[in-house]
Design a protein around this nucleic acid. Structure first.
Length: 738
DNA sequence: AAGGCAAATGTTTTT
DNA sequence: CATTTGCCTT
């Protein structure tokens, strides 16, 4: 042992102690248990607002500074780019530059990185392209055509969903079980052709990134063990959102030696419809017996009222690991429930409440309006506009997913890689230059027969004079255009390349012709693309910049919007609100058939997911929560009458105050007993109301949709679950409220 | 080949 | 209702 002076031992000790205090000091005891756990594996069940990210970051700091793991051995995995970025920033803050040698990224980003490093072992071309969902759908459509499959019988999206699902489950087309019905037969036929098309063109979709990265390790044990030796520690965020292939990938890497820290919340699993498997979190202890489980149940975000409501709602679910959030916060204001006449009234109420909030000194950015589906946003936006309240919508169209941007990117793609058929098809006639379906069909068939890319097919067809005059010159013009764009391309800087493509492609003129404001905003977006390219920093300075830019555009579609710093109300779906918090939250459209969504209200499993979504929504609120619902609402153009959401009724009344028109406040009575009957104008209390579930002795159960007239002669429209909608006369129908 | 009109079709979203 | 898709006309 080398001799060390007492001094330096003391210094070292002091240093370690200091680290321990900075790491554990700001934490509560459960958080400390998690951060300092020395068991092999660790499962952190982190309730909403319980300091999940903080625990993750501090745990990494602990592993590095106290347990003396090299930063090099840390692998941090998240789901969204946003989460990855935040994790990186906070690590940087805490650990300084040493954080930069960690691998921190999304599943897809890390898989991409691996495949880029080991493209040969992964059996990919060096310059493989990422196929996003839009490209993917286009490719599926082309495959339908080449196989002659009827899309009215098998919708494109169904096939796309099928392919993604198989890949998410780790199933290759050749490993599919033998088809038992026509559906499976057609789908596997498409899947097989799709895989061939992808590998021929060197294209990799999102699911493929994961599957390929998994197989890369599976087929190359040496490579796997290299990474197993490198990464001693895997940390996974939002573990409840992992799908089958992601979990398999983690398990493969973990092997027998690597330690896993999984952080998640089964109660916030809201992406089951996308392949996420809550089972992964539910079964983690079984898969890894040497796991200690820590529950983070102290919530630092919400008032007691809000938290009690959230707990009450989620307690109706059965498949839970069990967790009960508590807080040291004050009771806080009761939850306000507003029963509006229709969606306009609802929006007006919300806008008015936000105005009041601002008048009392609140920031607009502290208020968020959350809704189940994007269609709800329009009416809300209109009300905010009318009240002159700036707002910002999250989600929806991402920058790099916009049509005009994707067109410009396709020019760039084709300029650097003539074999990119997806890009070729996209822009060969955009802007329209006289190359119609017929001509493209000729090229497509030629390419397929000769097994060559479309570009080469086009050139060959030209030399063989297979096209008639007009089409001939149009194709020639297109070939010349791309070749011209590509001239000197390699010597130019990225912004120059982008600028050249936008100017040369004719896209600006094309969009100028589009009527309305849309064309203008598309042109602005194209200009914004040049700005974005100027700001782009390549990850690897050795490699060409443009391909890296294109990969990044595919992997991170970019949801930043203009006016980010403005003080604006936040509008978003409940799904995109996960992970965020706001002092004031409005949950709009708390109605049956809307939330829970009608597509989900039949199936108990999906209903549980809807309830988790409600839980997510409620727990976004820090100080004040408003729930609003509309007695009548335009849905798909027709008036519909929904009753208040079951999730509202799950909340004990003592946490709720009902707000009525004119600003009165009352304790809830009406919503609990459903809306007071509007059939009872003449004094006969029928107990019937719009949206009420009723039973009929012949037709079974149904929901009241509409009515005409009053009293015994009133005609009532009921939508029966078995026989559909019927008009009935009240005095004969003898409807019994259920 | 392109533009116009009628019909169909509607969750949630990341990568 | 609003947007997208497919069909039909120029």
């Amino acid at each position: 042992m080398p001799s060390i002076s007492t001094h330096s031992v003391m210094d070292l000790l002091k240093f370690v102690v200091m680290d321990v205090t900075t790491i554990l000091g700001p934490l509560n005891s459960a958080q400390r248990d998690a951060v300092s756990s020395t068991d092999k594996h660790l499962l952190v069940l982190a309730g909403a607002g319980s300091g999940k990210t903080r625990v993750l970051v501090h745990r990494i700091a602990w592993l590095v500074q106290v347990e003396d793991n090299s930063p090099h051995s840390i692998l941090g995995v998240t789901f969204t780019n946003k989460a990855a970025k935040e994790m990186r920033n906070r690590l940087q803050e805490m650990l300084g530059d040493s954080a930069s040698s960690m691998w921190v990224g999304t599943f897809h980003g890390l898989a991409h990185r691996l495949l880029k490093l080991h493209w040969k072992d992964a059996e990919l071309p060096e310059n493989f392209q990422i196929l996003d969902s839009d490209d993917q759908l286009r490719l599926v459509k082309r495959i339908y055509k080449s196989l002659g499959i009827d899309d009215s019988k098998w919708p494109y999206r169904q096939a796309q969903g099928f392919i993604n699902k198989q890949k998410d489950e780790g199933l290759r087309s050749k490993k599919l079980p033998p088809a038992e019905d026509p559906y499976q037969r057609v789908m596997s036929q498409i899947y097989i052709a799709y895989e061939e098309a992808c590998s021929r063109a060197g294209m990799v979709d999102f699911g493929e990134l994961l599957l390929r990265a998994y197989e890369l390790w599976l087929k190359n044990p040496d490579l796997l063990s290299h990474y197993q030796q490198r990464f001693g520690q895997i940390l996974v965020d939002e573990f409840q959102d992992t799908n089958a292939i992601q979990y398999s990938w983690l398990r493969l890497l973990a092997g027998e030696t690597v330690r896993i820290t999984a952080v998640g919340d089964d109660d916030q699993s809201i992406y089951g419809w996308r392949g996420a498997k809550v089972e992964n979190i539910l079964n983690f202890n079984r898969d890894y017996p040497e796991t200690s489980t820590v529950r983070l149940e102290q919530n630092y975000r919400s008032t007691k009222n809000i938290l009690s409501a959230a707990n009450a709602v989620i307690s109706h679910n059965t498949d839970r690991l069990g967790k009960s959030l508590w807080t040291e916060e004050i009771e806080g204001e009761p939850i306000s429930l507003y029963s509006s006449f229709n969606e306009y009234d609802e929006a007006r109420f919300i806008a008015g409440s936000i105005s009041d909030w601002v008048k009392n000194g609140g920031m607009r950015a502290e208020a968020a309006i959350l809704y189940r589906s994007n269609a709800q946003s329009r009416v809300l936006e209109e009300a905010l506009l009318r009240s002159q309240i700036p707002y910002r919508i999250y989600g929806g169209q991402k920058f790099y997913e916009r049509q005009e941007i994707r067109n410009a990117l396709a020019y760039l793609k084709l300029a650097i890689n003539r074999n990119d058929d997806a890009a070729f098809e996209r822009i060969v006639n955009t802007p329209t230059r006289g190359i119609g379906d017929k001509t493209v069909q000729v090229l497509r068939e030629f390419a397929r027969d000769q097994n060559i890319p479309m570009w080469n097919a086009a050139k060959l067809v030209m030399s063989k004079q297979k096209l008639t005059g007009r089409a001939f010159s149009a194709v020639q013009q297109f070939i010349d255009l791309i070749d011209k764009l590509d001239q000197n391309f390699s010597k130019e800087l990225l912004p120059e390349q982008v600028d050249k493509v936008i100017a040369g492609s004719g896209l600006i003129d094309f969009y100028r012709q589009e009527k309305g404001d849309r064309g203008q905003s598309r042109i602005e977006n194209l200009q914004e693309l040049v700005v974005a390219s100027r700001a782009f920093e390549p990850e690897d300075t050795e490699l060409l910049v443009l391909p890296q830019f294109l990969d990044q555009a595919a992997l991170d579609a970019g949801d930043k919007q203009a006016g980010e710093d403005e003080d604006a109300v936040q509008l978003m779906t409940l799904h995109s609100s996960k992970g965020l918090e706001f002092p004031v939250v409005f949950l709009a459209g708390m109605e049956e058939n809307l939330f829970p969504h009608r597509m989900s209200s039949e199936d108990p499993v999906r209903l549980e997911e809807e309830r988790r979504l409600a839980y997510v929504g409620i727990t976004r609120a820090m100080k004040k929560l408003y729930l609003t619902f509309a007695e009548s609402r335009q849905q798909y153009g027709t008036e519909s009458y929904n009753s208040v959401s079951r999730f509202v009724r799950d909340i004990p009344t003592e946490h709720i105050e009902e707000i009525r028109l004119g600003g009165q406040i009352a304790h809830p009575t009406s919503y609990a007993k459903k809306t007071p009957s509007r059939f009872s104008d003449e004094g006969t209390e029928t107990g019937l109301a719009l949206g009420q579930r009723v039973a009929h002795k012949v037709f079974g159960e149904g929901v009241i949709l509409n009515f005409e007239g009053n009293g015994p002669n009133a005609r009532i429209q009921v939508n029966f679950s078995n026989v559909g909608s019927k008009w009935l006369v009240q005095s004969y129908a003898k409807l019994i409220p259920v």
